[in-house]
């Protein structure tokens, strides 16, 4: 075959590509779209199936009863509360952690980086079990952390009904936080990686201390990342189930969050109630995501440079 035959035909003036080349690329893009589309379809189909089943099997009055149920109302409230606390705590930890990882070199950094990923890769039940052992069996000498926490809570809030961490609300939050925070740290690290260190260096030459350069220049630049990290932590926390089940239990009216509700209802055969609560969780997650996106867009959006 001569070289001339391999040469592309004269380029299409509109696209700059030869017609033959464009046709040759079709199967490639068809395969990409096909595979990605299949997954997309699966997600949409899953949600559509939930919705169809809920509409089929739950009447309007039953729906009202479900949310008037004290246990479920409590579970929704606890979910919103614990997820919000978790998201705030995660951001408070993730901003400095992400900044240190992004900007500084220190001995053992690779190890620290790997350790921070452990909650992401650890099986959820193991996270819960580890928390349970940490609080109730450690330290090996003297009273356990659980006993100390209980004492401390009793001292601060003398009237508290059931102080302590394990099988209580603090355990719900800790279980959520231990996993959600790892995601927030990743997000903040990526955010700071994308912000040029030059901006804070300029601030330093203008007379800022490190702290002031960080607070008045870096944090505002990182704001979108902060809100993404917070949202991610919030939604992760809502989906958390395994660690909560082991460390906090799923006592009705005490440590039951929406993911435990789904499990409890499902385990007694109330599939339709489980589905309705599931759909409520999906709705809340979508509302949170959209709200943050919209709120972010209110702030002017800039490309990174």
């Amino acid at each position: 075959m001569s070289d001339a035959e391999d040469m592309p035909k004269s380029p299409d003036p509109a696209t700059g590509h030869s017609g033959r080349r464009r046709w040759a690329d079709r199967p490639f893009f068809a395969a990409l779209i096909g595979l990605a589309g299949l997954y997309l379809l699966m997600i949409v189909a899953m949600l559509a199936a939930d919705l169809w089943y809920a509409v089929e099997s739950v009447s309007f009055s039953e729906l009202g009863d479900l949310f008037r149920d004290d246990n479920i109302a409590y579970s929704v409230k606890l979910t919103v509360f614990s997820c919000t606390v978790t998201a705030i705590l995660s951001v408070i930890v993730a901003v400095p952690a992400g900044y240190l990882l992004s900007r500084h070199r220190f001995p053992g950094k690779t190890l620290v980086d790997a350790v921070l990923d452990i909650p992401i890769v650890l099986p959820p039940l193991v996270v819960g079990l580890s928390l349970l052992i940490l609080f109730n069996k450690m330290p090996p000498w003297g009273p356990s952390f659980e006993v100390m926490a209980e004492k401390a809570m009793r001292a601060v809030f003398p009237g508290m009904r059931s102080p302590g961490v394990t099988y209580n609300v603090p355990a719900v939050i800790l279980a959520q936080f231990s996993v959600a925070c790892a995601f927030a740290v990743r997000t903040m690290r990526n955010t700071f990686d994308q912000i040029s260190p030059r901006t804070e260096q300029v601030a330093l030459t203008l007379g800022c201390t490190r702290a002031r350069a960080f607070l008045s220049v870096v944090v505002p630049e990182a704001w979108r990342g902060v809100s993404t990290a917070g949202t991610l932590a919030w939604t992760r926390a809502m989906g958390e189930f395994g660690p909560i089940l082991v460390f906090a239990g799923s006592t009705r009216g005490r440590t039951e969050v929406m993911s435990s509700t789904v499990f409890l209802e499902f385990s007694v055969g109330a599939l339709e109630r489980a589905v309705v609560v599931s759909l409520t969780m999906v709705t809340i997650a979508v509302v949170v995501l959209v709200a943050v996106r919209v709120w972010d867009r209110g702030e002017t959006v800039y490309p990174r440079h």
């Binding site: 260096q201 505002p220 800039y302």
Partner: peptide
């Protein structure tokens, strides 16, 4: 850096994306 009395103009004029031009000039 702040005590040296230098002005620094980095490559690509790295600006503070959340500040107005006025705030840039007033920052120092």
């Amino acid at each position: 850096a702040g005590e040296r009395g230098i002005g620094f103009v980095p490559q690509d004029g790295t600006l503070f994306s959340t500040m107005t031009v006025r705030q840039h000039l007033a920052f120092g």
